[in-house]
């Protein structure tokens, strides 16, 4: 670029911006196609339904899918009531600043590194509560981690419910609880769905918080107190600790990425529905 020629500078800048964008796209497409190509060779019906053999070099990921599902189930089962209650309390029952402390603490919680959640989960759930390396303690650790996302999304859903409903309900002398159950929660339902999906998305992608809470065992879990290996840990273990495990690591990664894409699509679908339903009301 030559400084004294503004037109040349503009052209140079355009070129640079396009090159960067193309470069980034190329690298990311490389990554995605690599996962799809390599993973595609590993994934088939048997891969999804069989148990891993030879430390995962052979066989499939069936018990790992089950463990992942159970960890997610524990995570959402615990964080949803807690998050819903907190979001409702923060938006509907304490509009003043008196509960800024809770908000602030949740915002900080959202930024805590996942490995720190892992440390905490290990110290509290696995040791103090005596749950050991188990699906339960992994799920509980993840519940703490997704709570801020969940609460934030539900709050956004609740706040966006038109003010007129609350006004009309108050003018009719209706109780806040009745208004909440009949009017506000149904109207905020898509927002709540988005929150749950974002929470699942974050939880399913998580590895570091689970290494020393839910553990490595790749057998089919028989109870929530069993250790269970989730998808992301399976990828990590195959890639790092098992020579020649890349193929099946890619296969597992493909399954994980597809799950995430499904979740993302659902999120934007619900968000779009939420936007439309709001427009219809206004």
């Amino acid at each position: 670029m030559v400084r004294r020629h503004p037109a040349g500078k503009e052209q140079g800048a355009t070129l640079m911006v396009w090159l960067v964008a193309l470069g980034i796209t190329a690298v990311f497409l490389w990554l995605l196609s690599d996962v799809i190509w390599q993973g595609g060779q590993a994934v088939n019906g048997a891969f999804l339904t069989q148990a891993p053999a030879k430390a995962g070099l052979e066989g499939g990921i069936a018990p790992i899918l089950v463990s992942t599902g159970l960890v997610l189930g524990v995570c959402i089962g615990v964080s949803l009531p807690l998050g819903l209650g907190t979001a409702v309390f923060l938006t509907e029952f304490s509009p003043q600043r008196s509960h800024r402390v809770i908000r602030l603490s949740l915002d900080i919680l959202a930024g805590v590194p996942s490995i720190v959640f892992g440390l905490f989960g290990n110290a509290f759930f696995s040791r103090v509560l005596g749950l050991g390396f188990s699906i339960l303690s992994g799920g509980l650790t993840l519940a703490c981690m997704v709570l801020p996302i969940l609460i934030r999304s539900i709050q956004v859903g609740l706040v966006n419910v038109p003010r007129e409903y609350r006004q009309a309900a108050a003018a009719l002398g209706l109780s806040r609880l009745g208004t909440l159950k009949t009017l506000i929660l149904p109207a905020a339902l898509p927002g709540i769905a988005v929150g749950i999906l974002l929470g699942i998305g974050r939880a399913i992608a998580e590895t570091a918080a689970l290494i020393f809470t839910s553990g490595y065992v790749d057998r089919m879990p028989t109870s929530l107190l069993d250790s269970g290996r989730v998808l992301s840990i399976h990828i990590f273990d195959l890639a790092m600790n098992i020579p020649g495990g890349e193929q099946n690591a890619y296969g597992t990664a493909l399954v994980l990425v597809i799950l995430l894409i499904v979740i993302n699509t659902l999120v934007s679908w619900f968000a779009e529905r939420f936007r439309q339903s709001k427009l219809q009301i206004l």
Binding site: E164, A168, A170, A171, L172, P186, I281
Partner: peptide, 20 residues
């Protein structure tokens, strides 16, 4: 509040039926 607002009804500028 509840008996007060039951006793004193209100109609708003913009019709505001619930989405039910």
């Amino acid at each position: 509040l509840t008996p007060l607002r039951r006793q004193v009804g209100m109609l708003f500028q913009k019709p505001n039926p619930f989405p039910l």
